[in-house]
Amino acid sequence: ATNIVGKVKWYNSTKNAGFIEQDNGGKDVFVHKSAVDAAGLHSLEEGQDVIFDLEEKQGKAYAVNLRIK
């Protein structure tokens, strides 16, 4: 899926990971530091509006192509 709108639920820069809550009510999506880095960002803030694509690896959904809304 592409161009999904959501809000950062939480992001821990020590653990280099967090979750994004989908505005469409879907399951929360894992976001890794690699996606944050690829977006040219240093970190994510709780409640921040984002747009992202979903990629599945080994049955788990990940946020990729992250951008700030």
Rank of each mutant, 00 (worst) to 15 (best):
Gly26Pro: 05
Val8Met: 03
Leu44Tyr: 01
Glu45Met: 13
Ala35Lys: 03
Ile20Lys: 00
Asn3Phe: 06
Trp10Thr: 05
Phe52Lys: 00
Glu45Arg: 14
Val36Arg: 02
Asn12Arg: 09
Asn65Arg: 08
Lys9Glu: 00
Phe52Ala: 01
Gly47Trp: 04
Ala17Trp: 15
Val36Thr: 03
Ile20Pro: 00
Val36His: 01
Gly25Tyr: 07
Phe30Gly: 02
Lys33Gln: 10
Ile68Gln: 05
Gly25Val: 05
Arg67His: 05
Ser13Lys: 14
His42Glu: 12
Ala1Trp: 12
Glu56Ala: 08
Asp23Met: 15
Ile51Asp: 02
Lys15Tyr: 13
Ile4Phe: 08
Lys60His: 09
Gly40Ser: 06
His32Thr: 10
Gly26Trp: 07
Glu55Tyr: 14
Val29Gln: 01
Ile68Met: 09
Asn16Lys: 15
Gly25Arg: 07
Lys15Ala: 10
Val50Gln: 00
Gln58Arg: 13
Lys57Cys: 12
Asn3Glu: 07
Gly40Lys: 07
Asp28Ser: 08
Ala35Ile: 07
Ile68Lys: 06
Leu66Gln: 00
Ala38Gly: 06
Lys7Phe: 06
Ala61Met: 14
Lys69Cys: 12
Val29Phe: 05
Phe52Gly: 01
Lys7Ile: 07
Phe30Trp: 08
Asn24Pro: 07
Ser43Leu: 10
Glu45Pro: 07
Lys7Leu: 04
Asp28Asn: 09
Ile68Ser: 06
His32Met: 10
Glu21Pro: 01
Val8Ala: 01
Val5Phe: 13
Ala17Pro: 01
Val64Cys: 06
Ser43Ala: 11
Ala39Val: 06
Gly26Asn: 09
Tyr62Leu: 06
Ala39Pro: 01
Ala39Met: 07
Lys7Val: 08
Asn65Gly: 03
Arg67Thr: 05
Ala38Pro: 02
Gln22Tyr: 15
Lys7Thr: 08
Asp37Gln: 14
Asp23Glu: 14
Lys27Phe: 09
Gly6Ile: 03
Ser34Pro: 04
Lys33Ala: 09
Val5Asp: 07
Gly47Cys: 07
Asn3Tyr: 06
Ala35Glu: 08
Leu44Trp: 02
Gln22Phe: 11
Gln22Trp: 12
Lys60Phe: 12
Gln48Ile: 09
Ile4Lys: 09
Asp53Ser: 04
Ala1Phe: 12
Val31Tyr: 03
Leu41Gly: 03
Gln48Gly: 04
Ile68Pro: 07
Asn65Phe: 03
Asp37Glu: 14
Asn65Cys: 05
Val29Cys: 03
Val31Ile: 10
Glu21Asn: 08
Lys7Ser: 05
Gln22Ser: 09
Gly18Leu: 05
Ala38Met: 09
Ala35Phe: 04
Asp53Pro: 00
Ile4Val: 11
Thr2Asp: 06
Asn12Lys: 08
Asn3Leu: 05
Arg67Ser: 04
Trp10Ala: 04
Gly6Pro: 00
Val36Pro: 01
Val31Glu: 00
Gly40Gln: 07
Glu55Ala: 12
Thr14Met: 13
